[in-house]
Amino acid sequence: MTDRLPRAAIIDGKAIGAKIRAEVAEEAARLSGQGWTPRLVSVSVGDTAAAELYVRNQQKQAEGAGVAFEARSYPQETSLEQLIGILQGLNHDPRVNGIIIQRPLPAHIPVKALQKAVHPLKDVEGMHPASIGNIVYNDLALGPCTAVAAVEILKTLPLKIEGLDVTVIGHSEIVGKPIAFLMMGLGATVTVCHHMTRSVAMHSRAADAVFVAVGKPGLVTGDMIKPGAAVIDIGINRVDGKTVGDVDFASVAEVAGWLTPVPGGVGPVTVATLMKNAVLATRLQMEHYRDAYAKTDI
């Protein structure tokens, strides 16, 4: 006889992503029937080897969901002014419904400048300052994909979100902070930990759900988790040729109630969320053009 808790239920991000993509395909088909086939353009600059896997995966997922996808690559020496001009052209092209800026970018290209240059209605990555800011007002029209995906995963679990104690480890502008605001919007009580937090473990052990997005393998261990808690691992790290998260999987799996694997957890849901944003952006643009050019009685 033992009092040891059972291992955590491993959350299947691929299954959650597949469900979202099926819904996206239905919506994409409806839009295509109205003459608005969703179309994404991916923009890469310089050495694209690091982003090629992501681009291929995005293209595969897009085509499977009925979303057209075009990958464009530009030379390393392309200037910021030239790239902003390219993005402005895409913004004004009604055949383009979403723009993805692939990272990494050359050192002379500040990513925030490009994110600001993408029109908010075509910001399918949810990276424009307006898209991030809307979350404060609980407007989730086009939210940052990774943050939205992580929260969507938690919503699939049999947990009451209202009043849930949540700890977010990591406070980046595009993942940690948006997750905190999204969870507050759903009624959770949220604590955000960062590199100046005195005792991360004290906060994580008190939480019913823990989100981890730092980029440091093995950061969160089993002794930092409340028994039965949900743990959403958003980290992506390469260790000895393998992709791992920020969570020490073996020790946390012995304590947590639910746990996302890396890979196969948040990643597939993030790409599916990107496609969901693509069809939503297309519908928003269709409605915008119809309102702008609607016939009026004079």
Rank of each mutant, 00 (worst) to 15 (best):
N97S: 15
E52K: 10
P110V: 11
A50I: 02
L274D: 06
I236H: 04
R72E: 15
E70G: 01
Y137W: 09
A22N: 02
A281T: 04
A253M: 04
V244T: 12
L5G: 00
I132G: 01
L280P: 00
N138M: 10
V118A: 12
G257N: 07
S79D: 05
G264H: 03
P217H: 10
T260I: 10
V231W: 01
A130V: 04
L90R: 09
D291V: 06
K295H: 13
W258T: 02
V279C: 13
V200K: 08
V166L: 08
G170I: 04
V175F: 09
C145N: 08
P75G: 11
G257W: 07
A250N: 10
E26S: 09
G264C: 06
Y137D: 07
P38S: 11
T197L: 11
K60S: 09
A272H: 02
S199T: 05
T37M: 11
V252G: 03
A294C: 09
E254M: 12
D223C: 06
A113D: 11
S32G: 07
L114C: 10
A15G: 05
S199L: 03
N138G: 03
L40D: 04
Y74E: 08
S199K: 08
P261D: 13
L154P: 01
D12I: 03
V244K: 02
P110E: 14
V96W: 07
R198G: 00
T191A: 15
W36Q: 14
Q102K: 06
K14V: 06
D123K: 01
I179E: 02
G98Y: 09
